[in-house]
Design a protein around this nucleic acid. Structure first.
Lengths: 187, 187
DNA sequence: CTTGACGTAAACAGTTCTGTTCACTTATAG
DNA sequence: CTATAAGTGAACAGAACTGTTTACGTCAAG
């Protein structure tokens, strides 16, 4: 990946998350990144493509961070406990909510701005959420049958979304801990 | 309230919810409502004021609908059960998600677009969410002590947010029923 | 040492957006 | 009948937005 292109995506991701997708103009991204407009349109056909690239980056960040945390947790366990491996998600959320860089979930937010279910951006966001739930289900499959596992994963997923919204719209940064206790109660 | 003003607010609320707040231009609202631009700016100093008026309307709709449902449920009960009175919220959500007019929660969505916690619009959205949780807490106070009640109300609130996001971003319209079962498990 | 990839700066086109203004119409209450 | 409030239509200003184009640098690899 060319460094200027990568830098554009990095900058765009931050600005989109903080200020929104429509509200963040191309010119702001260019000014903030110090890249010229011609370069942007050499790498991306449109703003929409840049949004998708930023979401792709964020998707990879979230997935790999989650995998790392689960993996680290497995190392620290004497006996493998799938439930505990899933609950690290909420510790992860807790860190995120209390960081300086928390401005809500990119995918929830972008869904709000591009609400048409057939829009590529909306589809991407939905797919991301599905991948996360699938990762949760995957962790649980060793313990239960498939049907119940998928159900539990959806419940966990619902708690994750609830915690994010609570933290973002009401500013309740401790929501991840509330959700974690509720998740524990499911097992 | 002058009829044209009310009509503007009604139209704006629908369009903002469906297409987003930045993406919905003044001109679309005017074309859709058949009101002239001069009239709009006689009633509202800015688009932001119109957004706030639309949110105020939505807030009143949600609160009064919820009160009605809870009240109706109380009538149908032989013995008053606070938990059941709260759980009607999820039946309400279920209807909403499966209606033609579901495009996510106005307040979650507007928070995504106006993420600055000091922005009047963001403050309004946060206040709305707090009012709803307070209504839930109020229903539960007859049964438990205040501390535990507030905690339970936040948990219910978290499930509500989770269900809304799940229904909106993943298109899982049955999320309200999932959340309802989880809510029942809290008691 | 030159070719080609990558980048910049700046002007420009074309659209869309918010908000203003003004001359004119309509309806109604005193 | 008339004063007043409410609304219309249309033009306009000014800003912001996305996207294009042109002419010009830089630099590393063959």
């Amino acid at each position: 990946m060319q460094p200027r292109k990568q830098h554009l995506i990095d900058t765009a991701l931050i600005l989109f998350n903080q200020f929104g997708y429509h509200a963040t103009g191309i010119d702001l991204i260019l000014a903030e990144s110090g890249v010229s407009k011609a370069t942007l349109y050499k790498h991306f056909r449109s703003k929409e493509e840049l949004i998708l690239a930023a979401l792709q980056l964020r998707h990879e960040q979230v997935v790999s961070k989650l995998q790392d945390k689960i993996e680290a947790n497995k190392q620290n366990q004497e006996k493998t406990d799938p439930v505990e491996n899933v609950l690290v998600i909420f510790d992860n959320l807790n860190e995120w909510f209390n960081s300086e860089t928390f401005f809500g979930c990119n995918f929830i937010n972008v869904s709000a701005e591009y609400a048409d279910p057939n829009h590529p951006i909306n589809i991407f966001a939905a797919k991301h959420k599905q991948v996360i739930v699938n990762m949760i289900a995957e962790q649980l499959t060793t313990k239960e049958n498939n049907q119940a596992t998928q159900q539990k994963a959806d419940q966990i997923g619902l708690l994750v979304e609830g915690a994010i919204v609570m933290a973002h719209t009401r500013g309740m940064k401790q929501s991840a801990l509330i959700a974690k206790e509720m998740a524990r109660g499911l097992f």
